[in-house]
Design a protein around this nucleic acid. Structure first.
Length: 429
RNA sequence: GCCCAGGUAGUGUAGUGGCCUAUCAUGACGGCCUGUCACGCCGUCGACACGGAUUCGAAUUCCGUCCUGGGCGCCA
């Protein structure tokens, strides 16, 4: 019976384990193998005169990162890592690894991001890298459980869509039989239509595709978005929800991912409520007080401005009350001052994490705003139709999962937070 | 799309016209080694992205191509 390596303790008498050969140290009459599985690393000690001859033969043949099965006696030894080691009676190579390896899993020599992604399956064998993805799993798990607990239902919307009708970002065109189609940039229109369906509270965790030719450590062409939409809610309600969700996720990771955080040497601080809500006009002033290059009203926050404000605030915060002109047509203008709208961005001091708004639920106003953006309402008919038969007021947001993980774990590159990143140049693996 | 930087053994690097049949580390292979834990020691192997130009001489300068990293723009 195979035991997880962690389950082998100094009290164990014997054990059988299967794992990867992390390192081989052959001292002559004595050899050490470090065997790794996803639960940890154990030392296998081979006194060559005391173990079967076949075992000694196999130690000669085995290469680093091969998969091996070891069965033997467990000895409690203080000088062994974890206070125990296995002296093998059987050693079997289950799958030999070619040599040399494309990168060093034992991390004696670093590898560049590009080299790592080329051999991502090997890269992920590093405990540090695995820890990131275990935490990412905890993040999405905690976020969806949280939304379920608040009465949200999980929906799935199409990733292949008919036309580039939302304007703005570039979409990836694809061939859809005899029709032109695109990869969806966001579930925005569909989750709003589900408000007309009467679901009231929905969320979706799924991929979004953006054909922007940027080349930065914080952009991906395929990303994962957590999207939420709620009826009978305004922008403040969904900001409260987002704030609670972020705190819940941090708290869950802090409580359940201790060992992974330890591997990453991160002392995770759970953010506290409430996150400051800074009006756009104030945010501009804060940035202008610090930056050489001044921002004007109506400018989007540049990366430099985001960092400047971030260093000033020093924690998660919202930028609220944006100029209507620089937000999408579906953002609800304030009735008493329509040049501003009920839109917001959730910011981490390093970058934007989420953006959202109370939406326009009035059909005619929506048509007017679509026109004001220079777009054709006819192209939105499938969407506008949902606003003609009883559309409740609603609000929502979209949150970038990779950015959430990246900022939580202080990763230098967003590619660290995706198994197989899609960026300007990379399509494989 | 614009701008900057870069491409040297499997991996990570040194090397700014001759001292380079190219440094160091890691690795692989062979040898010695019974308590390693980045094991140690000895030996061996393995690389200048591609094409052209300048030059007596190019990893090094120039041009082009391909590829990569990053910043900005853009990111409804």
């Amino acid at each position: 019976m195979r035991l997880p390596i962690r389950a082998v303790t100094p009290e164990s008498r014997s054990a059988e384990i299967i794992g990867w050969v992390h390192e081989v140290r052959d001292l002559g009459g004595l050899a050490f193998l470090l065997i790794r599985d996803r639960t940890g690393i154990i030392q296998v000690t081979i006194p060559k005169k005391k173990v079967p001859a076949e075992v000694v033969e196999t130690v000669r043949d085995v290469s680093r990162e091969s998969v091996v099965r070891v069965r033997g006696e467990v000895k409690a030894i203080d000088k062994a890592p974890g206070g125990r080691e296995i002296v093998p009676e059987e050693l079997e190579i289950i799958s030999i690894a070619d040599s040399p390896l494309p990168l060093d899993v034992a991390e004696k020599v670093p590898a560049e991001m590009d080299t790592r992604i080329d051999s991502r399956f090997l890269d992920v064998r590093k405990p540090r890298v695995r820890a990131i993805f275990c935490i990412r799993s905890a993040v999405t798990c905690a976020a969806t459980a949280f939304l379920h607990s608040r009465g949200y239902i999980n929906i799935a919307t199409p990733k292949i869509v008919a036309a580039a009708t939302e304007g703005g970002t570039d979409l990836f065109p694809i061939a859809y039989f005899e029709k032109e189609a695109f990869m969806n940039q966001s579930p925005q229109l569909y989750k709003q239509m589900m408000m007309a369906a009467g679901f009231e509270k929905v969320f979706e965790l799924g991929p979004i595709f953006r054909a922007e030719e940027h080349n930065t450590v914080r952009h991906l062409n395929e990303a994962t978005s957590l999207d939420v939409e709620a009826s009978f809610a305004d922008h403040n309600d969904v900001m409260d929800l987002l704030e609670d969700l972020i705190i819940h996720v941090y708290d869950y990771v802090a409580k359940t991912c201790g060992e992974h955080l330890e591997v990453l040497e991160i002392d995770l601080e759970v953010p506290e409520k409430p996150f400051p809500r800074i009006p756009y006009t104030e945010a501009i002033e804060i940035a202008n007080a610090i930056l050489e290059e001044k921002l004007a009203f109506g400018d989007d926050l540049s990366p430099a401005a985001e960092r400047a404000i971030g260093s000033e605030i020093g924690r998660h915060y919202f930028v609220v009350d944006w100029p209507t002109d620089i937000r999408p047509y579906y953002a609800m203008p304030y009735p008493d001052r329509p040049e501003f709208c009920k839109a917001f961005d959730l910011m981490h001091p390093r970058m934007e994490l989420s953006s959202g708004a109370q939406r326009v639920h009035d059909h005619d106003l929506l048509v007017e705003q679509i026109r004001a953006k220079g777009l054709a309402p006819e192209a939105f008919e499938f969407y506008l139709k949902a606003f003609r038969y009883g559309m409740p007021p609603h609000a929502g947001w979209g949150l970038g999962i990779e950015r959430l993980v990246m900022t939580m774990l202080d990763l230098g590159n967003i590619r660290e937070a995706v198994l197989f990143p899609r960026d300007r140049h990379r399509l494989t693996p």
